[in-house]
Write a protein that binds this DNA or RNA. Sequence first.
DNA 1: TATTGTTATACTCTATAACTATA
DNA 2: TATAGTTATAGAGTATAACAATA
Lengths: 155, 155
Amino acid sequence: MSTKPEIARSTSERLRESGLGSDISFLLARANALSVAAGNAALAPFGLKVRSFSVLALAAGDVRPTQRDLSEFLRLDPSQVVALIDELEKRGLVERRPDPADRRANVVVATDEGRALHTAASAATSAAERVLHGDVDEEDRRRLADLLGRIAYPR
Amino acid sequence: MSTKPEIARSTSERLRESGLGSDISFLLARANALSVAAGNAALAPFGLKVRSFSVLALAAGDVRPTQRDLSEFLRLDPSQVVALIDELEKRGLVERRPDPADRRANVVVATDEGRALHTAASAATSAAERVLHGDVDEEDRRRLADLLGRIAYPR
DNA sequence: TATTGTTATACTCTATAACTATA
DNA sequence: TATAGTTATAGAGTATAACAATA
């Protein structure tokens, strides 16, 4: 048990106040690590992780992306997308359909069951996000999303 | 070659506008992926990656953290810290010194050479960060750091 | 000739357990 | 009895190259 004097800052506080600890890249890495951990924990009851959830989420919308689209948007190698879709398809959550515009390509769409699971899982991740962002109110969350978007989607 | 009409949004634009694409957790993951990639590229000429750079940065300050401190602050397993310090120590960039307060613990400090490399590498990562944050001005960078800090360092 | 999806493979990263020396 | 550092190992994540079908 540490019984340090109140006046002295702890080592972790001092590291936080050091150069690295206030670096945007480092804060980004740390915030993301916590976010992924919280997301995976919230998704575990659904048999999903943030990776497979993001594929399911995009398949559940009306965009009808090809595997190549998913690969580029999620910044995953095409071979990783194959593995993720294999797993979701085996569980009956998504389907590969031939792209009418290009017979090489598969369009990935969620099944009814997949959309239902996505809805339930979304509620869980949103709740986990609200806990993680407990210190950030709604207006600041919008501001944060805007700022992150400018970094996440460079021109 | 895709010769789509200008009026139609591309698939990636439509994915971006979908639910997931504006989710803070997803934006965080995507921004961090770009940040790590840019950081590793900027650090490659120095024989460093963001991981080893962060250890060197903390060792180059005056906090004198133990390996345990580094493990907790960087959210790395103690065994990973061992490997990172082994490598940096082999290159003469950091040293393990016995903690006078606890003979089980090692304090990690940068050598003169390590501090010099840290200074040079810091300039490179700052430059890469400015490129990545090209769309975000100084005031918004401060705001972003504040918002990220509230997520990265929960109470 | 180039691209989509696929398979195989290797490499990095991360997580876990067990051990030692000190506390 | 618990903690700091270490070692070993296995699992997850990532990157690369080669192939068949199609553009």
